[in-house]
Simulated scan of single mutants.
Amino acid sequence: MSERTYIGLDVHARSIVGCALNIDTGELTRSRFEDDLLGTAEWVRGFGPGVRVVYEAGPTGFGLARHFRAAGIDCVIAAPSKLLRAPGDKIKTDRRDAKILATMLALGEVTEVTIPDPGQEALRDLSRARHVASADNAHAKQRVNAILLRHGILFQGGKSRWTREHLRWLHQQHFEDPALEFAFQESLAQEESMSVRLKRIDKEVARVAADCRYTEIINALACLRGISTVGAFGLATEIGDWTRFNGATIGSYLGLVPSEHSSGETRTQGRITKAGNAYARLLLIEAATVHKRPYRRPGILELRQLELVSPATAARARQGNQRLHARAAALEERHKMPAKARTAIARELAGWCWSLAAPLQEGRPMAGR
């Protein structure tokens, strides 16, 4: 049988639909498997040693690709957002999706997703668990504030909330209506529970970050203003191999570059593409807000962080902090919209993160700028 066979798989939790395309004869071979990795692998092996397999990235994860690669089968995972589909194609089935994947793989039109090893995926899951806990805690706080606001009760102890003084004030609030009192106390108890949960996860992240494969990169990224140990841990685990990019492509990968619709002599740019890793993009945008604050010399916490890295990395990080603050100040002088200015800083911050992390992974000296 021909060695040039390309197989597309439409993978679901309990079923796999396969379509094999022989590009010499144009023959299509289809099959369906019900939650059977071994049977799927045997079917793929039957097409010879030169077979290539592809399936879309999705909630089923990377287990199937790892299983195929362990069995000596060349398997790639396609980025769903990069798959081409005809505008007039309004029929979507598992069989058609598998055929489209096989055809695109044969044409070399598949944009591959990097497959992390189990260790990196475990660290990534810890980082994402922290993100979920932070979001849950924020929502719990919003619910408590919403109840008080709806009944005209405002904290008079200053603008800062969720401080010790604010928490004492919250516990002093009571309502005459039993149902309302129960709802408020339950919301407050939930917030306290979420806060304890978040602190517990933060401790675990700090412990793991201090001794893992990305510790050196985490320490370097945390030298940049706005990026805490938790943020650096998230960026390091989400991106993994920084050497895949350069200073320009890292922003594109994270979806921080403008979208574009150009035709003929008309060139129109729109909002950022928001392609790629949404969590890493969020971490950078959150960090970008810090850089509009004045920056003359490193603070105590920054100095402690700079002591954890090499002199070359420390110098590069300080250069980045100065450049990013100057850039933020220039955008503010031009009266740029805050959201656009923040996004521009996040895009440049991504490049500075790359300039710190990539040389460490490559083992080369830190370059100047």
Rank of each mutant, 00 (worst) to 15 (best):
L303V: 09
S195F: 02
I77R: 09
D74R: 04
S262I: 02
R296F: 15
L9H: 00
G251F: 00
D36W: 01
T243C: 08
D136S: 08
I153K: 01
A102K: 03
G152N: 11
R95Y: 04
D97E: 08
S2N: 09
L256I: 06
A65I: 05
I73D: 11
P118S: 01
A20Y: 06
R30W: 10
L170F: 09
T29V: 06
F68Y: 05
R96S: 12
V54R: 06
Q185N: 13
S2E: 13
A326M: 13
G226Q: 02
D202A: 03
S15N: 09
G72K: 00
R150G: 15
A357E: 03
L64K: 01
L38Q: 12
I218Q: 10
L324W: 10
T163I: 03
I272P: 10
L9K: 02
G88F: 00
E191L: 03
W162D: 06
L149M: 13
E191P: 00
E307L: 11
G226D: 04
H171A: 15
K159H: 08
V196E: 13
P311C: 08
R128T: 09
A129T: 12
V17K: 07
Y253M: 14
H291P: 10
K336L: 08
Q319E: 15
L83R: 10
L154K: 11
D36V: 00
Q361A: 05
T268Y: 05
E42P: 02
D10K: 05
S187W: 03
T111F: 08
E191Q: 07
W352R: 04
K99N: 08
R200I: 07
C75M: 04
K92F: 14
Q142L: 03
V290D: 12
L38A: 13
P365T: 03
L64P: 09
A78D: 07
L9M: 13
A312H: 03
R369T: 12
S228I: 03
E192R: 00
E109Q: 13
V309F: 10
I115H: 01
P294V: 04
P59D: 10
I239H: 04
G270Y: 00
G39E: 11
E109F: 13
A287M: 05
H12Q: 13
A135I: 04
